[in-house]
Structure formats: C-alpha cells, structure tokens
Amino acid sequence: MASPRMSSRASAYSALLPAFIVLAVVYIGSTVWTMWMSLTGSRMLPNNNFVGLRNYEILFSNDRWITSVHNLAFFGVLFVAISLALGFLLAVAIDQKVRSEDSWRSVYLYPYSMSFVVTGLVWQWLLNPTLGIQKLVRDMGFETFTFDWIAHAETVLYCLVIAGVWHAAGLVMAIMLAGLRGVDEDIWKAARVDGLPTWRVYASVVTPMLGASFATAGVLLSTSVVRLYDLSVAMTRGGPGIASEVPAKFVMDHLFERANISLATAAATSMLITVIAVVAPYMYWRTRVAARGRA
C-alpha cells in the first residue's frame, strides 16, 4: 500500500509526464537528432554516414544561404531598432495623460493580433507599384513619384521592415507603457519639485529605469526575427530573385522541396547556435537580477 504522501508525489509526476515527454523527445531528442543529421550525408531520407563538418562548408559557400543570413541581419537590425524606437515614443506619448488613451492603444496594438500572412498580403497590396500607394500619389498629380521598393532587389528588405514594424511596434508600446506605469508616482513628483523638465526626467531618470522593459522587448523582437518565415513567404516569396530570402525559409525549402536534409539541418543548427548566443547572456542576466532581488 502506498502512503497518501507517495500517491501525491505520484500524482505530481503524472501531471508532469507530458512535459517530461516533451522535454525528452522534442527539446532534447529532436535537437540532438537535427544536430546529428547536419553531420551526415542525408539527402531525401536520413542516413548515418558521418561526414564531419562538410555540410557546414557547403552551407557557408551557398549563395542563397549567405544572402539569407545577410538579409536577416539587415532586416533584424532595422526592424528591432525602429520597432523599439517607435514603440517607446508611442508609449511616452500615450503616457502624457492623453484623451481616450484606450483607443490610441488599441489602434497601435491591433496589428499584433493578426498573422504574418495577413500582414504580408496587405502590405504586398499596399506596396503594389501598379495599383498601390505609388499610383495613389501619382494620381494626385505627382507623376514622377516612385515607390516601387517591393519590385527591386536592393530595396525589397525595407518593405519587410515596414510590414514588420507595423506588426510589432504596438507590442513594444504595450511593454514600454507597462514599464512607464510601473515607475513610482513619487519619482515624478520629486522630479517636479526638483524642477526637472519632463524630457529631462524621461532621458535621465525614467529611461534608465526601463532597462528590463527594453531587454524584454528586444529579446521578443529578436526571436521573432530569427523565426521570420511567414512574412517573407506571404509578402515576397523570397523575391525578387533571392533578394528577400531568410534562413528559416532556406531550411523549409531544403527540407521539403529540395530534399537535402543534411544541408537543411546544418542551416537549422546554425540558427540554433545564433539564438543561444543571443538568449544565453539574457537568461544569465535575468537569473542574476532575480537572485539579487531575492537577496
């Protein structure tokens, strides 16, 4: 006969069973399998012929992959920087006791509720050179107006950035606004008594206090950058040419269309390493902050 204590513990394990299975099969099993396959000569079907790092050599001499990585870096820097800046400004603006605050907030945040596919298709339509914004402005009399970024390899990434910022700036705004609202009311009062101008309080006192909000928003945006797939697929299909290809799409195409598993898994492993490089310092910082909070 198990004691009641034992049965409680067994129940706790039973509740955690799905999570432990996921841990073993998905988090550990799949990751290791993916990493292993990147070291084999697998093509359409997986095999275990160890080839060392040959796939990585092929990968990093593959034009499409190199372009994808460049694109991602370019997109990522612009997207994260602009989203953070715009989201922060919006949060500060809304924090000025504006009228109908809820309506403004809803307007900035609603794009985040929609999928990247929807986002991509709407912006594809808006940026359509023949019938979209370019035509609109030309019809207004500015006949030499040109806004056909989506049709050119050199500029198509800006289009992805516009759509991405449109989708995510509201999220940054919401996180920043929560941070701003968390600032002790007395600090604002103290600053007023000290005679600090509002902009100075934001610059010297409040913004430094929002470190955690900036980090949270920055990490959320960065992970969505690495995951970038749907937006590129829906908006440009990687084109023109390979001008808007991204790593996630490279992996998917090589897995399911080009039947080159080893190359795809090598690419996926590279993505994994990149993410770990971003997330690990952040997690470390968070646990340190948490530990300091407890002390």
Partner: peptide, 17 residues
C-alpha cells in the same frame, strides 16, 4: 529547458518531429 525552448526557431525541431 522550457524557458530556453520558447526562443528556439521551429526549424530545429520540425524534421525530427
């Protein structure tokens, strides 16, 4: 593990799954 996995791109898990 869960905290870390929340950040990892799906492409890492998809094929084995």
């Amino acid at each position: 593990a869960m905290m870390i996995v929340a950040f990892i791109p799906y492409q890492v898990f998809i094929y084995p799954l």
